[in-house]
Every structure is written in C-alpha cells, then in structure tokens.
Design a binder for these strands. Structure first.
Lengths: 152, 152
DNA sequence: CCCTATTCATTGGCAACGCCAACATTGGCA
DNA sequence: TGCCAATGTTGGCGTTGCCAATGAATAGGG
C-alpha cells in the first residue's frame, strides 16, 4: 500500500480485521524483501522448513503439513529442484508418489533464509518491548488456533 | 489455506510475521465473505467509507486517503458508479480532475456493508475476551503506526 | 479377483490485493 | 513562454490462496 498522506479513515483505525491485514501487509513486505535477497519467496521457505522438520515426504503430505495447495507445491518444488535444494524421487512402494528430500545445499539455504527472516522479525516488532511481543504472539496464536480448528 | 492435517511447523508457530499473515488471511476470508454477500469487495467498502468521511474528493485524493493505488481507484469507481453508489463529476476549476460524490444509495450501501463487517469482527475475535481484544488492537495499532510513518 | 472409490502429481485457471510504467491532458510556476 | 508536476486511465506484473480436471496408480469392498 502507498503511504497515506492523511491518516487512515477513523473507522478503520479500530477495526481489527483492518489492523490485521494492514500489519500483515507490512510483515509480508519485510519477509518478501528478506527472502527476495536470496531469490526465494514465502512458499520456498515454507517448503524447505517443512522438509527439514518432517524429513522426506510425498508432495501431498508436504501440502498438508505446510498448508500449501498441492498444485502450488508442484511449481515451488520445480523451482527448488532446479536449484538443487531438493530432490524428487519416485516412491518404490507407491508409484503415484514422489518422495521429496531436502539436499545439504537445501539445508544451507534454509539456514540462510532463517537468518534473513529472524532479522525481519526484529524490524517488524521494533516498536514493541519484549512483553508486548510475547503478548502479541499469544493473542495471534489464540486467533489462529481457533480459526484453524473448525468445530464442525 | 487448507486446513493442515498436522500442526503447522513448529518454527512458524512463534514467528510473528507468520502469525500475522495467517490470522490476516482468516480475517480477509471473513471480510471477503461478508462483503461478497452484498456483491462488494474490500476496495468498494474502503472507497465508500473514505468518501463518507472526507466528503467529495478527487480520485487522487481518494487514493491518498484510502491507501489505494490510483489505477485501482479507477476500476473500483467504475463498479460503484455502475451501481449508482457514486457519481463522477468534472471539476470546473481543474479539468484534470473528477470530483467524486457518494450518493444516498451509496450511503445506504455503506451502512449495510458496515453491519456485515461488524459481524465479521465478532466472528474474528470470538476467542478473545474484551480485555484481550483491546490489547490486540493496541498492539497492532502500535505496529501499524510505526511502519506507516517512515522516519526518513 | 474385479470394480469402484480414492489418492497422487500435474496442468491450467481464477480472484483479491498491492504496485509500477506509460500516456495524454491540464495546471502551476519560474 | 517553457518546463515540471499532477491527474485520470490503460495495461501489466507478482504473491498468495484457491478450485477443477486429468491420467496414472492404489486401496477397499463385494
């Protein structure tokens, strides 16, 4: 978003969904910039991080664990594989599946991206003291947990 | 995002930018659904709300006050004008400009959208008690203020 | 064992938001 | 007067989150 030359309309300034989407936009900009410096996007990081945590997995499983749609997994893995950060391997026990492995280079890249992201977090939270940071994380986590686990 | 069948990768669950963008995604989904029931999108609401607050304004001014790019203003106003919620009028004192007015129907539509949005806020904040809600708004407002006013 | 339903990877498409470049017209200022 | 800035407009791009359809392969029930 452009920098408003005048304050945001008053109504919105206390509308939680507005505050959330706006701060998220700033956060996304910081993250995009941080990752972009290493030729990566959010999806790239999320897949590498998921792979490092869960170990080798099928693309469908990667999607379920990372929250990325299967179709988007394909394109992202193509990028990562092109850069040798990841390897696709047919599953001998189920020929529908690819087993995806993170490579040593992929782990190194993940470390690099992680550092870039950590820096971005600091920039993002700059105006908050440690107590407020924890409080923010707590509140957002409450919201996320609630909306991620539909009662139905 | 799809509902993860397994918990989100641990790293991300305490990453503020992740929590922000994810909760913002949920918030955006609620808002989109609420506005969609009235054939509106976020840009439509934002422009109507801005017009109601500032009174008639040029498109460039609308962009600056609402934080919407000039080019996106054009398309959004086209939609609103097609539905007679807004009127474009040439500025007699500056032939480059259009003076945009909100119509009575536009004000009624804004009221409707506002109600829909208020309901969405409640759904969004359901898991938080009033104290936590105020705290969340306070923290997000701090972040937004900080990142909206570049020191440079 | 066979048929059906499901799963998988993949392709291709869509919507919303944020943003940028270019253009012609018009205004303001030096 | 001459040049720069602002305005509306068109057209385009990238990221994220989705959905539908397809062909191959597997799993499950009868």
């Amino acid at each position: 978003m452009e920098h408003p030359s005048a304050p945001t309309p008053g109504r919105l300034r206390t509308t939680p969904s507005w505050l959330l989407t706006q701060t998220a936009t700033h956060a996304a900009r910081l993250v995009t910039t941080a990752l972009g410096a290493h030729h990566a996007r959010g999806y790239h990081y999320r897949l590498l991080a998921t792979l490092a945590e869960t170990g080798p997995a099928s693309q469908a499983d990667l999607g379920r664990h990372s929250g990325i749609d299967r179709s988007d997994i394909v394109a992202t893995l193509n990028d990562l594989a092109d850069r040798h950060l990841v390897r696709r391997q047919p599953d001998p026990t189920d020929r529908r599946r690819n087993i995806v492995h993170i490579t040593p280079a992929g782990r190194r890249e993940l470390t690099t991206l992680q550092h870039a992201l950590d820096t971005a977090q600091d920039t993002l939270l700059a105006p908050l003291d440690p107590t407020d940071r924890r409080e923010l994380v707590r509140l957002l986590d409450l919201l996320l947990t609630h909306h991620n686990e539909p009662k139905g």
